[in-house]
Simulated assay, not measured.
Amino acid sequence: MTNKPTSSPDAAALAGRAKAAPTLRRPRDAATLVIVDRTSPTPRVLMGRRRPEQVFLPNTFVFPGGRVEPADRAAARRHALSAADLEALKVEMRGRRSDTRAAALALAAVRETYEETGIIVGAAHATAPPPLASAWDAFHAEGYQPCLDKLTFFARAITPPGRPRRYDTRFFIVDADEVCHRVERTDGELLDIDWYPLDRARALKLPSITRLVIEDVAQFIDRQGDNEGPCDVPFYYHRHGRQERAVLRR
């Protein structure tokens, strides 16, 4: 009689853990733009609700933003950030660090804001660049070009492992005075787009990272009121299953 081979308990446990282990995805470069309106007694921020059928963070309120596209990297050679923000963005930058990659992050924030909300942060141009079949064509067709000099890099967060999408997101902030135009057409990714006072924003259904960044926004606004200079950048990430908060020194 031949004994049939059986799996040992240790082997079965290892197989179970391997099956349950999350797929490790490399975070993709992404950017978000927080626009602050100070015309009312309480500062307001532009937010929208992600559609309920979306895979990543469905039915939650977020700031406009998205991943960096090749068109952003191509355009980055023609648009400059402030020297301080350029250097801050390259601190702890994964992969190859470059000025072009840093500027592409800011451009992605401006472009995604236009696509998702119809809001343009930029300046009018005399002659529109020729169409290049790129993600920037619609923006340029409105008669504007992006301006990055008023944007400030103020936070960074990496999506935890195991999520259906992972992003290494840089958060930029700009005053609503820099909004030069708004169109009604959007890509439909965000619903309920509106200006929300910070206290009301805190009460919305928010991803955990957005809730943290709202507090960073409040602190940023307070520092500006006190005329403080550029500050260090909070950096949120996960290690050993726990959320960590580091500080990127300027």
Rank of each mutant, 00 (worst) to 15 (best):
L204C: 09
E112H: 14
R44L: 08
V217W: 01
E215I: 06
R165A: 11
H181N: 11
F220Y: 12
L191Y: 05
R73N: 12
R242M: 03
W195N: 01
Y237K: 02
R111Y: 04
T60I: 02
A84Q: 15
D10F: 14
E92C: 10
S98K: 05
A80K: 05
D168R: 04
G16S: 12
R200L: 14
S40P: 01
A106I: 05
R51A: 09
I173G: 00
R239Y: 08
F56K: 08
V233K: 01
D175L: 01
S82G: 12
E228H: 13
V213Q: 03
E116G: 04
T159C: 05
A11G: 10
V121G: 02
A218C: 11
R38A: 04
P70K: 04
H181R: 12
S40K: 13
R67I: 07
D137L: 07
A18H: 10
C231I: 10
A74M: 07
G225A: 12
L191V: 11
V179W: 04
R50M: 05
I193R: 05
D99S: 09
D175H: 03
T113D: 06
D216M: 02
A218I: 15
R49A: 01
D137N: 10
A20R: 10
L89I: 15
G241W: 02
A75W: 00
G65S: 09
A201Y: 00
I158S: 03
D232A: 07
A108C: 06
P52C: 08
L107D: 00
A128N: 00
K4L: 15
R77H: 11
